[in-house]
Structure formats: C-alpha cells, structure tokens
Design a protein around this nucleic acid. Sequence first.
DNA 1: CTGTTAGCGCGTTCAC
DNA 2: GTGAACGCGCTAACAG
Lengths: 344, 344
Amino acid sequence: MSGDPARHPPPPSRTPTSYDVAQRAGVSQSAVSRCFRPGGSIAPETRARVLKAARELGYQPNAIASGLKAKRSNLVAVLISNLTNLYYPEVLAGLTRQLNARDNRVLLFALETEDEVDAALDQVWRYRVDGAIVAARLSAPQLRAFQRHRVPVVLYNRWSDGSDPVSSVCCDSPGGERMLVDRLLAAGHRRFGLIAGPEDNTVGRSRIEAARTRLEQAGLTPVVAGGSFDHDSGAQGFRRLMMANDGAIDAVICANDLMAIGAIDAAREDFGLDVPRDVSVVGFDGVGPAAWASYRLTTVRQPVNRMTEAAVGMLLERVADPDLPPEVRTLTGTLITGASARLG
Amino acid sequence: MSGDPARHPPPPSRTPTSYDVAQRAGVSQSAVSRCFRPGGSIAPETRARVLKAARELGYQPNAIASGLKAKRSNLVAVLISNLTNLYYPEVLAGLTRQLNARDNRVLLFALETEDEVDAALDQVWRYRVDGAIVAARLSAPQLRAFQRHRVPVVLYNRWSDGSDPVSSVCCDSPGGERMLVDRLLAAGHRRFGLIAGPEDNTVGRSRIEAARTRLEQAGLTPVVAGGSFDHDSGAQGFRRLMMANDGAIDAVICANDLMAIGAIDAAREDFGLDVPRDVSVVGFDGVGPAAWASYRLTTVRQPVNRMTEAAVGMLLERVADPDLPPEVRTLTGTLITGASARLG
DNA sequence: CTGTTAGCGCGTTCAC
DNA sequence: GTGAACGCGCTAACAG
C-alpha cells in the first residue's frame, strides 16, 4: 500500500546493521558482509537482492566495526606542521586525494608547535591507523614509537637525522640549489646573500648548505642571515644582509619562496631597489604567489603531485607488507625562470 | 633478573589489550577500562597500578573498539573544498585545533570538485562520525542525508539556499561590504567596478549583492565582472572592467582578497596604474598575502578564530544534544585599512 | 569500589 | 554459494 520504499525510505529508528539488511533480503548476515567486501563469493542474484535491501534501508557498512574485526581501519594519519605555510595546503590536498583514491581516509593532525607531537601520536596509536605520513619534525624516540607500534610511516620532506633509517620522500635540495646557483653565477653575480630557514629544520638547512657549498666551490663566500620561513623573516633577513654588507649584494638566495617574496618586498620598499636590476632574488618551492605579477619569482618548483603520489604509494606498500625495508625517494624539482633574477 | 621493564618494554608480539593490562595489574578488565574513562570510579591506588602496567606494556585504549561499543567515535568529518584557496588553510588549522582541544579527531575530506561530495558523504556515514563541519556546497538532498543519518552538521561560510534550516556560522557579508562601500563613497569614489566570485557560490554572491545594493542606495550603478575567486580571474576581471568603461573606474570591489590582489597586479602591469592614486581596490577575507608590502590590501578580515570556535562549539553542542534547533551565527569582520584604497 | 556479564556490528572460519 | 557460530576490544549494567 505504501509508496515506493526507495523513494520514501522509512525513517529507521536506529542506523540499520547488516542484520537488518539480511532479514529484509532473506539471507544471512554473512552474505550481506560478503556483498560489501571485494572478492566475496556471492551469487549475482543474491547480491542484487542484498544491494536492493541495503539501498532501501539506507545501509552503510560500519567502518568502525569492520576495522575492529579486520584489524585494518583504512585510516592513515597525516601529521603536518605549519599548515598556514602556503606550501602545505597543496601537499595536503594531494595526499588526501591520493589516499581517498586508494580507499583510505585521512585522520588529520595539524601541529602548531613541536610539543603537540606526542599528544597527536597518542591519538594515532589509539585509532589504530594503518600508517602515517608525517610532514613534521620527529625526534628519535618518536620515530622508534612507530616501529614499536608497528605503524608504517613515511616522512615528507624530512629525513631521519639519527641512525634509524626511515622511509621518506623529499625534493632534491642540492640539485635544486645547484641549478639556481649555477645560473646566477653564469650571469655574473658574485656577492651572495643567503636567507636561511629555522635552525632545526633539515630541509631549510640542506638548501642553504647546498647553496653555500656550491658557492664555495666557485671560490665565493656568501653571507648568511637567519630566518624562519615566513614573509617577515625574509624581509628582515634582506635588511640584515644589506646592513652587514653596505648594500653590496648581487643576489639573495632564500630557503623558501615566502621569504624570497618578503625579501623582494623589503628590497623595493625599504631600499628602493629594482628587482632584478639592482639585486636578484631566488626562492624554493614554487608556491602559487611566487607566480604573481608582482614577483614572478625565480625558483625551483617541487613536484608536489609526484611527491604525494610517491609518499602514498610507499606507505600503502608498507601497510600491505610491513617487512619492506625503508626507502628514501628523492625527486628533482624544476627551475622556474621567473623575472626576479638576472640569469645566465 | 631483567632490567627495568619501563625502560626496556618487552616487544609485544601483538598490541596489548586491556586484558593484558588487567592481568599484569592483577585487576579485572573493566577496572582498566574505567581507568581510561573520565568519571570512572576507581581507587587511586588501583588506578596507579593499572597505569603502571599500561605504561610497561605500552598499552593505548583502542579507539575503534571503544567507538563501536560507545556509539561515539569522537570523529568529526571536515569537508572542505578549494583547500588551495589561501584562506582555508587557516580555517582548517583552527578547526583541527579546536576539535583536538575538545577531544575530537578530524577526518578530513578535501574536495576538488562538486561531484566528489557524494563519495565523501558515503565515507562519512561509514565511519559513524559524531558530526561534520562543511565548508563546501551541499545540495538539498545531501543536506537531508545528514538528518537521515542523524549526523549533526554545521556549515562554514555557507548556508542553506533551500527551505530546511541548517546550523551555520558565517562572516557577515553585508556588514563588511557596507563598511568598505561607505568609506569608499566618503572618499569621493563614484565609478565602481565589482568583481564577483563563482556564480554558484553563495558567499561570493552575497558580498557582491551587498556592495551593489549599498551603491544603488547611493544612486550609483556599478559595473560587474565575473570571476572565480582566484588570482587570474581577478586580473582578468579588472581588465574587462577597464575595457568596458574606457578606463573610467574609481574603485574596484572584489569578492575576495585573492582576486583583489590579481586586480592590483593587472592594474599595475597591464595599465601602468598606481594603486590607490589612480584606482582603489578592496577585497574580503584578510588572508596573509593581503598584508604584504606590495599590496597592503584594504579589506575586511574574517574573525577566523572566533568563527572556527563557534563552529566547533555549535557542533559539539548538537552532538551532545541532537535535538537542539538549528542556529545561524553571523560574525562581523573588521575593516583593515590598508593602502590599496583612498578612504574617506 | 570492584568484578561479572552481555553485547556493539562485522569478518571469518567452518560445515553444509 | 550459503549460513551458523564465534570473537575482535571495549563499555555499561549490574551484583557483590
């Protein structure tokens, strides 16, 4: 007598379970279970009946219960610091896209400070995630905790400074800096200033070290100013470099784009300089704003898509086979010839 | 004979359960459970023994199992589109911070296109999240699905265009635009151009409508160009406005900061104009780059922290009491008097 | 305050 | 191909 139940699903008093579906379809609960699991042997006809009943009831398999039984939550923890850092949103978008495409959900932990890591890890263990991707600084004990808990982990643009090898995917800093430095040298720049990232950041350090090394190979000694990866510190760094050198700077190499943009702003605003006529500025990352008309930054763009793809791939491989040895994958960025540097 | 087990925890062959802890502490399993639950009645001394055993075993309560039993996963789904849109990272950081502080985890769904919503929602139901915060466009049926599944939802900077009322937290568009328009009018601007957001975006539309209305109240008829919230479309919009008006534009009001920045870039680059001497440009949001020296954008800053706080608060209230009626909370932004507009 | 007991919803043997 | 039965690890009554 009532209308089509598919169009007017009866408001269930509680969320339907596989038993409800089984009853409605006239099969056993385990048959329902097999319907929703890949590779479950089930007759096409039964399957159709079950799916119909499921649809009518608005049934969705309970991933929580399923995770309990199967010991596989299909959850991947993503730990990421400095979400507001302009470069990570793209990374995060890439990671979630890749993970979702491969049937995993993202449990996000956005860290604001280092001391939040332990609390986040506690939750990571509690939720029995299948694995983790970490774009944040991890101490040696924290890294060991992953082993103890048998949770595969892949570091993103970080690597273990300690002895324990850990899987990671990084953008090649030395390679990228070499491209930049060589082109700047070829254009005749000789007096270099470097603006570094936070001291405890391995990526930032490796970039600055790589640039410095390359310059020293060319017989030059750059001046270095500290920074913290943000716009302001780039501007400040530029001012300090100028002060320290009486304005005798040809080119400024920054540990990331955001600081490079800050440096350009300072050059124009505080010193009335023209970029790149008076001074060349280069960065690293290839973030969106770097391409804006006001900057047209010369930089190295990280292959974010390939990197996130690699990270997710490596992680899921290790979820499937926990005994796979750690692996470090280094991808090379591409030089973006903007207009913020005179290049040779 | 062996060393301190706290320092050298025996590598457990499998992750320890509450039973293992119970055995080691010489208590029942339920005592262990109570130890880890707020308000569980347990003698301080027993509690200490249990916690010690737990530490020695490296035990962490299984949130999956707990969720199954308690029918509360402590998971909150966050659906967000355009993660790369420069404004959302801050929102996402705020939401996760608030949620974690209140003992909820974030299940993240970063949507790239509209048609990913349904797939995401399927997973939302499967994971039996306690609630959801949505910064993405939802259709009426999708909204109804939340009711059907009894999942409380709070919209972020969106609202239901349909009839069903839904809880939401928004930044006051009319109020913000009025501030901008009034100040621009007071400064003597008369020839206005507007650059809109995507047509299907309610926030963008409300901003442009509010600006237009206010201008019409003043007897003015602005010219409108379409846009899509990104830098390029802001630049294009500016060019179209100039073409359509033979350069006779005093002020450009953009539906967001990113487009305002694009407009400024176009004004300088393509028309050699000085901002704000030749033309005033204003935006909306208060994103980081808006404050950079090259732009110093005049804009309305959304009170992101208060907004995320409100969203999380409203959601968790409704998780605790699903019968609370929907509520719309509108917060007013603050005018940032930058240097991209001549103001009265 | 403590232990015993009974499920939560599903996956997985096993017989049939 | 199908169904009965059990248990994943935990919480919530309840009795002691």
